Computed example of a mutant assay.
Amino acid sequence: MADYEVILKQYDPLWRTEYQQEKDRIAAVLREKILDIQHIGSTSVEGLDAKPIIDIAVAVKHLVIAEDCAAPLRAIGYEYVHKPEFPSRRFFRKGTWRKGTHHLHMYDLHSADWQNNLLFRDYLQNHPRVLQQYCKLKQALAAQHPADRTAYTLAKAPFIANVIELAREETRRQ
């Protein structure tokens, strides 16, 4: 089932600036409710082609805190989007449906999802060969699924899972 177009852009250093500006806005409205904010996803990895959407991970002590964050986030342009298929995170979007500019993913600080996002990002940043493999895979999948972001995302999942496992192994060896 087609959902919407997959458009990849070459890495843009302005994505880091956009993230930092948004991080400051989020921190200003959520203050003590949050424990950490991280830039995740492909826009956080220098040299990686990406959909031009800034992905931001926000860690909280307990996921129920997300309910207290909805109103302050709405004040800076974020909309809560209920995603029952992802029970271990809360998702907020900035921008209109299918044209969002920022995605905010809220996780429990000690959750596997929080850790996996950081492991994946950091592994790509520290392993240029794997980064290039992922970039080529994304380009091929975007060509294969140009109007179906769901299929594109699902097709990347085995590669991502493998990289997370490599990152875990590397962490255990250290």
Score class of each variant (00 low, 15 high):
67 E>T: 11
136 K>V: 13
5 E>Y: 08
77 G>P: 05
88 S>L: 13
74 R>C: 10
93 R>T: 05
80 Y>G: 12
44 S>N: 11
12 D>M: 10
60 V>K: 01
87 P>F: 00
131 L>A: 10
15 W>L: 03
155 A>T: 09
22 E>D: 06
96 T>G: 15
111 S>I: 02
120 F>S: 01
126 N>E: 11
35 L>E: 15
61 K>Q: 08
127 H>V: 08
165 E>L: 12
67 E>C: 15
27 A>S: 15
167 A>Q: 04
120 F>Q: 03
109 L>W: 01
93 R>E: 05
103 H>C: 06
120 F>G: 07
6 V>R: 04
11 Y>M: 02
28 A>P: 02
37 I>Q: 01
10 Q>V: 03
25 R>G: 01
80 Y>V: 11
169 E>L: 15
71 A>P: 00
37 I>L: 03
30 L>N: 07
154 L>C: 14
108 D>W: 10
86 F>E: 12
36 D>P: 01
154 L>G: 09
29 V>N: 11
8 L>I: 15
120 F>T: 04
72 P>S: 05
102 H>C: 09
134 Y>W: 11
124 L>W: 00
151 A>G: 00
31 R>H: 01
99 K>D: 08
112 A>N: 15
116 N>M: 03
3 D>C: 09
95 G>L: 10
55 D>K: 09
12 D>G: 06
161 A>R: 14
32 E>N: 14
58 V>D: 03
76 I>M: 01
139 Q>W: 02
81 V>M: 13
31 R>V: 00
132 Q>M: 14
147 A>V: 10
107 Y>S: 11
67 E>A: 14
170 E>V: 00
51 K>H: 01
84 P>V: 14
39 H>G: 10
48 L>A: 05
145 H>S: 06
105 H>F: 02
26 I>D: 04
96 T>C: 08
9 K>P: 04
31 R>S: 06
25 R>F: 02
138 K>F: 05
57 A>L: 05
94 K>D: 02
5 E>P: 04
36 D>R: 09
83 K>W: 12
108 D>Q: 13
78 Y>L: 07
114 W>L: 07
3 D>G: 07
4 Y>W: 11
166 L>P: 02
141 L>T: 03
105 H>C: 06
95 G>F: 00
95 G>I: 00
64 V>D: 07
83 K>V: 07
169 E>H: 06
149 R>S: 08
136 K>A: 15
72 P>K: 06
17 T>H: 12
97 W>I: 02
64 V>P: 10
18 E>P: 13
129 R>F: 15
142 A>Q: 03
10 Q>L: 06
72 P>W: 07
104 L>P: 08
62 H>W: 03
162 N>S: 04
113 D>P: 08
94 K>T: 00
4 Y>T: 02
2 A>Q: 14
66 A>I: 02
68 D>R: 07
83 K>C: 13
154 L>E: 13
78 Y>A: 01
42 S>I: 09
14 L>V: 11
82 H>M: 04
100 G>F: 10
91 F>P: 00
76 I>G: 12
16 R>V: 09
129 R>V: 13
144 Q>M: 14
118 L>V: 11
57 A>K: 01
163 V>Q: 04
49 D>S: 14
28 A>M: 04
28 A>I: 00
92 F>G: 00
119 L>T: 02
77 G>S: 13
51 K>R: 03
